[in-house]
């Protein structure tokens, strides 16, 4: 682990740095989507990334996974420079993501979606995938085409599919959007389970404030691609700039939506 690369000075954050963004920048034409962002994700933590619509959250994820190429800046995974790597190579190194708009393989069954990466033969011997599928209730749908699942179920499928690959870091883009409250509980349990049992760290985007505050150990708030505040939930909630930029004046801590 290259501790020299850790520019972040935030005290009180446990664990080693597993993912580090340094001055990450990307503009589309004239629009600056991400403007020199610095952030870290620590081992075993759930880190939040919040901000208004169009503030550059999804773009940040795409820059990390190499789906979009950064204009400048660096991404380090476990101290290793991965900025110019191909997406699949990054994924194989243990960094996986889910998408804001689900991306399941619609004409493949749930079973195939879950086994596509590792091959049915090997996966059947490992119970992990099925264990995960059972947690979120997908085990009864193995023979359905993924395209026939509801949006919420597709989100779960995507999450299980990625978790089953035993990632060290997961980027979740709005996992709670369009998911009902019971399912929300399942999802929270699921994330906690994967974090605890699989030693996975999370970087999480969502607009569901209460859940973010409850789940996250550390939160970054961005607006127009730049950081306006960071810290543990309590600090972020109290921050004046955040309130104005994001929550609006009417925001009451702990209120839903």
């Amino acid at each position: 682990m290259n501790s020299g690369a850790e520019s972040s000075t935030d005290s009180g954050r446990a664990g080693e740095v597993v993912l580090e963004l340094i001055k990450l920048r990307k503009s589309f034409g004239g629009v600056v989507a991400v403007g020199g962002l610095d952030a870290t994700v620590h081992q075993g933590e759930i880190t939040g990334l919040i901000g208004p619509n169009g503030s550059g959250k999804t773009t940040t994820f795409s820059l990390i996974t190499g789906t979009t190429r950064a204009d400048s800046g660096n991404v380090l995974l476990g101290g290793e420079e991965i900025t110019s790597w191909r997406t699949h190579r990054i994924a194989n190194r243990g960094l996986l993501r889910t998408f804001q708009l689900t991306r399941v393989f619609p004409q493949m069954t749930v079973f195939e979606n879950l086994t596509v990466r590792s091959g049915a033969r090997r996966v059947t011997r490992e119970s992990l995938v099925w264990e995960l599928a059972e947690i979120v209730g997908l085990h009864t749908k193995l023979d359905e085409y993924a395209g026939a699942l509801s949006f919420g179920q597709q989100k779960l499928l995507e999450l299980v599919r990625a978790s089953a690959l035993q990632p060290s870091v997961m980027l979740l883009d709005e996992p709670f959007a369009g998911v009902n409250e019971t399912m929300e509980r399942h999802l929270v349990d699921f994330i906690q389970h994967v974090r605890r049992e699989r030693k996975c760290s999370f970087f999480l985007i969502d607009h569901e404030m209460q859940l973010i505050m409850e789940l996250c150990d550390h939160i970054y708030v961005i607006a127009s691609g730049s950081l306006i505040c960071e810290g543990p939930p309590a600090v972020v909630q109290a921050d004046q700039a955040t309130r104005q930029a994001y929550f609006g004046s009417g925001f009451i801590a702990g209120a839903r939506r």
Partner: peptide
Amino acid sequence: SSYGLRLIAIREDEIAAEALGIS
């Protein structure tokens, strides 16, 4: 084979396939 499934995954959604570590 899993190779065939990977090919089909690319047909279904290349970006998702790549994000899962398929080249």
